[in-house]
Amino acid sequence: MSIQHFRVALIPFFAAFCLPVFAHPETLVKVKDAEDQLGARVGYIELDLNSGKILESFRPEERFPMMSTFKVLLCGAVLSRVDAGQEQLGRRIHYSQNDLVKYSPVTEKHLTDGMTVRELCSAAITMSDNTAANLLLTTIGGPKELTAFLHNMGDHVTRLDRWEPELNEAIPNDERDTTMPAAMATTLRKLLTGELLTLASRQQLIDWMEADKVAGPLLRSALPAGWFIADKSGASERGSRGIIAALGPDGKPSRIVVIYTTGSQATMDERNRQIAEIGASLIKHW
């Protein structure tokens, strides 16, 4: 058993032996400061991975655009179909130039040979490839079927209504393609630790998130040596930015963190910096 498999397999085991986890309101002070700095709403939640207890939250039940963070949920739905014998990670999917949409750094290189379902999930999560996400959405029946999958998990909040890139429109008060921090954190925890997916599929999902290559300026920039993080970021119109993550010290995840912001006029660099500073406060007061 690899170190990674050891880590995921023991998450339920550690729940019975973990020390009490204490919240630190200092992080919420930073979240509120980020709102002031960005001139935008910020949603935040910090969840204990083992118990599911909410440690801190700010606007946990307000809607925010999901942006590309939905791609983790999408690959969770794909893995659920794999577990049920309805899909194979090794199945190759062929597509054409007409299928390519904006920001497809991986799929645009494989027009001649296509990509496997496994490769598409990797591209969608680690590189946020939009065509990969659309191709995967097609395999499960489209955005409405992803919403149905989430409903069956008990998440009646999170919804996907459109495809890439239209889902990134982020119109104020538009509930399409949105979630709430509390709903996203709970759903992510179920995917990573619950019985919905097999152990192998849970491991695969967290491996893809751990290999994320496009979230460096966010929480990863504040991470001390030896800490673990598996994450997925997102960005969209109207100053929207977000990240969902499982992270913790000693090389294993122990908390879920979800951060969303929307409605800012700030630059992408400034949005990144504010999220990184929230992460730094979280780690300092861990």
Rank of each mutant, 00 (worst) to 15 (best):
I11L: 13
L282Q: 03
G248V: 03
V78Y: 02
A225C: 11
A16L: 15
W208Q: 01
I229Y: 01
A182Q: 13
A77C: 13
T147L: 02
A211P: 03
E119K: 04
K232N: 01
P224S: 04
A170T: 13
F13W: 15
S80L: 12
M180D: 07
T267Y: 05
A84T: 12
K252S: 10
R118E: 14
L205F: 13
S254L: 09
L10D: 04
M268D: 07
P172N: 11
R118G: 14
A200K: 14
I256V: 09
S128G: 00
S233T: 12
A182L: 15
P12D: 08
T198Q: 11
D155E: 00
C75I: 10
F22Y: 15
Y95N: 00
A170I: 13
R59L: 01
D129G: 01
T138V: 12
A182G: 13
I171S: 14
D177L: 01
Q265P: 11
A182C: 12
G85M: 09
D48V: 03
I244D: 01
G85S: 09
V106F: 06
Q203P: 12
K109R: 12
I243D: 02
A183P: 05
A133G: 08
N168A: 04
E166P: 02
L219E: 01
S240P: 05
G226R: 07
G251H: 10
S104C: 05
T178Y: 02
S240Y: 07
G242C: 05
Q97C: 09
L49S: 04
R92E: 08
K284H: 12
L73T: 06
V78T: 05
H285L: 07
S221I: 09
S201V: 05
H156L: 12
A280K: 15
L191I: 09
R63P: 05
T158R: 01
L136R: 01
R220Q: 02
G85Q: 10
S57E: 10
Q4H: 12
I278R: 00
L137F: 05
A246R: 01
I259S: 01
L136T: 02
F17G: 11
A183E: 08
I256N: 00
D99T: 11
G216V: 07
D33V: 11
R81A: 09
G279V: 07
T158I: 01
A246D: 01
H24L: 07
I243L: 09
S96G: 13
K144H: 14
P65N: 07
R118W: 14
P224R: 04
A148F: 11
L188Y: 04
E166V: 07
T193L: 11
P105Q: 06
D113V: 10
V72C: 04
I244K: 01
V82H: 07
A222T: 13
A40V: 07
T158H: 00
Q88V: 11
Y103S: 06
